[in-house]
Design a protein around this nucleic acid. Sequence first.
DNA 1: GACGGTCGTGAATATTTATGCTTATCCAGC
DNA 2: GCTGGATAAGCATAAATATTCACGACCGTC
Lengths: 316, 316
Amino acid sequence: MGRINELRLIARVAQMYHAEHKRQAEIAETLRMSQATVSRMLKRAEQEDIVRTTIIPPPGTFAELETALREKYRLTEAIVIDCSEDRDGAVMARIGEAAAHFLEVTLQQDEIIGVSSWSQTILRMVDNIHPLKAAKAKYIVQILGGMGEASVQAHATQLTARLAKLTGGEPRLLLVQGITSSREAKLVMLSDPVVRGTMDFFGRLTLAVVGIGAVEPSELLARSGNTFSREELAMLHDAGAVGEISFRFYDKDGKPVETPLNERVIGITLEELRKTDRVMALAGGESKTAAIAGALRLGIIDVLVTDKFTAARLTE
Amino acid sequence: MGRINELRLIARVAQMYHAEHKRQAEIAETLRMSQATVSRMLKRAEQEDIVRTTIIPPPGTFAELETALREKYRLTEAIVIDCSEDRDGAVMARIGEAAAHFLEVTLQQDEIIGVSSWSQTILRMVDNIHPLKAAKAKYIVQILGGMGEASVQAHATQLTARLAKLTGGEPRLLLVQGITSSREAKLVMLSDPVVRGTMDFFGRLTLAVVGIGAVEPSELLARSGNTFSREELAMLHDAGAVGEISFRFYDKDGKPVETPLNERVIGITLEELRKTDRVMALAGGESKTAAIAGALRLGIIDVLVTDKFTAARLTE
DNA sequence: GACGGTCGTGAATATTTATGCTTATCCAGC
DNA sequence: GCTGGATAAGCATAAATATTCACGACCGTC
């Protein structure tokens, strides 16, 4: 009896507020009640489902997949990009682009950014960064040594330097092999004060941008030439390794896989990544699905940028 | 290219804000941007139609009709009530109930309320007023003399007194005939200081609650007995009178109709009503449609309470 | 390549909204 | 009929949100 009149009034208040864009104080005056009452009525309007707010995701975005990813893997943020097909080149480009935009918008003053500089996807990200959007980074730190021959290494260096320039930061390069030939060789490298200087930043990063690699013999071999021995590959495989970040391996449950190989890598460790404020991972593609799933279970990734097909597989 | 990423982010912010009920400051922190930017993004989300707010009128309410009425007749407020059929008794009861609720909610401290105390609908309103809702009225003023025989007059007096009691105000009665037998008789009545005292309030009302009467010989005669002469009725008719408020007549365009009858009425004038802060009219029913339409065109009514059928006819 | 206009930003601040507190009333149970 | 707890209101004020401001970068013209 009284309820219908009450609801009518609430609906009217909601209409004035939401549709006619009147201030609560104005509504209160028109309807001769206090602003507090109007505020409370608006709250009730939501409870009674008289006003309903719908979020319509813009076409080409995948809010649902993102939410599912965030919730399943406890991410701060997930970015899922559209792509017509699984073709790797296109996917990487789109991931890089989205990551670039996100980075630009969320970049803070004086960040210390670590970048895993040999990933193709990260390269695409740097390609797409719009030079400087107000905030300036402090240092751009290369968090993994170079790969393969000198000319390829130069690429990595350039990427880091370019990112540094675009963000206004100072580059901190790691001019050594990412994977040394032996434990001893690594120790020699580490004796270089410049190398140590760069590596000192690993524990002080405010943001790390990393790629995720799959553990498939073919891929690893293709990428790194003969850096891995047949035994090492077998060892990784036996230990259940499914992927790597900065050549630190882990299994499908997100448990780090310790092998002697660790001793040969010059790059950030998973522990150091864990201590980093924000870790942003860029990866997509069918072949990397297991690697990404494992990486997410490590619990060190805050932001994932991937494609819709991979996202769908990850949330299954 | 960049736009899709931008929209994605806006949608994400909108989701966090509207669906997850996070504060802007919290969103800003999560996404490493300023609260100002979040606020701006939310505004853009509305512009881009990424968030859409819908007001769902509760069943049994008629927001559209109300809006149409408000706009067509420039009302502050229109209240349209549901009723299954045009049966007058039921309609009056519902109108009275709705008016009572509105009055309760919008009643201010120390109002001086004028009430046209012989309308059946207003009687139903008073019946439905929930005794006192915080605010107390100052005076309840009877704005039209009594009608017909003494026993009926007592009714009117009681209504005013009851409303006074319910609202905590002091009643100001008008213990005279609403329509005197002649101009001279009226002057005699007006010489009574008590009557004058009540009438002095007519110009100081903060709220007037009035009924609207149709000009149909049958109805007028039925209601008022033989108070009108055949000549007067003819005069009203010739002048195009379609309705009355407090026995002040007007035509279909909302132009007051001046006849010698005016000289015999003891009650508030249209001019006095015009000066009143809020004038609330209660009326519904097929037969009163023209009278209501004319009344609304007078431009003195702020709030109309009516039924859905009448509202529909009025907005045609 | 310098110049004015536009745009977008964060910090500070103004405005608007939500809420804690107090009071008054109502209702249920005694 | 009286008391205790619940409810709802307004006021004052805290909290949240919008806007102003000043500044720096970008862009198209000269």
